[in-house]
Each structure stands twice: as C-alpha cells, then as structure tokens.
Design a protein around this nucleic acid. Sequence first.
DNA 1: CATTCTGTTCTACTACTATTATAACAAAAC
DNA 2: GTTTTGTTATAATAGTAGTAGAACAGAATG
Lengths: 128, 128
Amino acid sequence: MYIQIEPESDIPIYSQVSTQVMEGIIRGELAAGEVLPSVRGLASDLGVNMHTINKSYHDLEAKGVITIVPKSGAVISVAPLKGASKEQTDLLSEKLRPTVVEAMVSGMNDDEIHALVDSIMRNVREMK
Amino acid sequence: MYIQIEPESDIPIYSQVSTQVMEGIIRGELAAGEVLPSVRGLASDLGVNMHTINKSYHDLEAKGVITIVPKSGAVISVAPLKGASKEQTDLLSEKLRPTVVEAMVSGMNDDEIHALVDSIMRNVREMK
DNA sequence: CATTCTGTTCTACTACTATTATAACAAAAC
DNA sequence: GTTTTGTTATAATAGTAGTAGAACAGAATG
C-alpha cells in the first residue's frame, strides 16, 4: 500500500490521503481487518503533520470505510460496503453536479462524460 | 433565467452561482450574446455581496463560458463550446476522482455510478 | 448633457478551513 | 518498563469565502 500526495494540488492533503486509502481498498490491496499505518507513521512518511492524517482517518471513519481503535490503530472496516444509501447517493450527486455541469457546458456529450468516468474507474482499479 | 442558492450548502455560494449559469446555458435558457444581470443586481436579488457574484463571473470567464465587458456587463460567450481540451479533461478528471472513488468504495457498481451521472445530466437538462 | 449604471479597485473585517508545531495524557501493545 | 497509539490541548500561520463601504472611470441611457 503506497500513498503519496501532491502538495501543490488544489485538493486538500487530508482528502488526497482519504481518496488513496479508498483506492487501495477498491484494488484489493487493503482488506477488511487490515491495519493502517499510525497517524504518526504515515505523517512522517508523507512529510506532513500528524493532525492532517488524523483528519483523514476521521473522514474515512465518518464514511464507514475504517474503524479507529483508540490507542491501538485504524483498521479497515469489517463488512464490505454493500452499496450506497439514499442519503449517500444524494450527497455524492451534490458533489458531482458542479463538475458534471462544467463538463457538459464545455461541450462534452454524454458518451464523452461517461468515458471520462469510466477512465477514472479503470485507472483506480489498475493503478499500482 | 432563475438563479437561487442554498446558503447552508458546503458548496461555496460563488460556485453555486457559476454552476447555475452553466446549467441555464445547457438548457438553452441562456444563449450566446445574451447579457447576464449586473453583479450588483444579482447580488441584491440573491441577498449576497457584490464581490461574491463578481468572483463567480470571473470564474465563468476563466472557463470561457462568459465574457465580461468592463462597465457594460457580462455576456454569454459567442462561440458554443466545442468540447473539452486535454487540459480541461484532465482537470475535470482530477475534480471527479475523489467522488467517483468514494462512490466505488461505498459499494456502488459501474452501472450504478453511470446511472447517477446520467440522472445528474438529465436533471440539469430538465430542470425548470 | 446629466444621470445612472457598469465592472473594477481599494481597504477592512470576520469566520472558517487546512495545516502546522509542540506538549502531554491514558492506555494498549510489546 | 518502555514504546507506541489515538487523543486532547494550545497556539499559530496562511488561505479561502464572504462581507461591508467607498470610490473610480467610463459606458449606457434618458
């Protein structure tokens, strides 16, 4: 499991970390019950502050992806997630909308937008 | 053309305004050459500060969606946008990735994610 | 021509977010 | 017993979002 960040990106560091942990799970590199590095350890590896990683782990816990065990560490949640609830879907839709709209107004047609989404999903699954 | 905002949303107000202008264009409610309300007028209508609308208009201009004519107003760009450049596509992909990843790890399969994107596109086109 | 309206610039402020640093606690783990 | 863990606390900086008010130059309108 190899996490790296792009400090210059507009996307906050903690969010990048969260996304990469989730990608590791999607690719099967991280399985239920597996332990994530400590907040101190990962922070040191990435050259960022412990609180930044802590924020990412709490973000992931809020999403149900991991479980934080105080004084012990963070583990991948036991149950594979089984699909998004209505609330989650609505939130995801709200997050996606501005970017989808931007793609549409830029002149991309439906197939092109779907292809873009497909390429993201493929890249996530295949990335080493 | 009817713009409204949700002040409580996590999405910044200026971004909401930008998105809605783009949606109006997608739906054909706004056409090339048409004039947008003045920053003062729209700010007053929405109950927000003029600078907030100014930021949105500049955001839209940076995207090539509108042209701001100093001392005159903002107009929808003349040329319909003809598809996204490689740079734009990469930026859009970067923006979409975290949310697509979140959808994937939540257990949504490819078809469900495509359906979500479809529903957004449909909703944008049909909304009054 | 006078007035109004326009985007713009300027100054100032508040609140929040992201990130950083350091110290320390309690308790699990080794 | 020592180390490691997440956590809490305090403090700070920088940037973002949004606000307010004033004022400028020039276009647009009546």
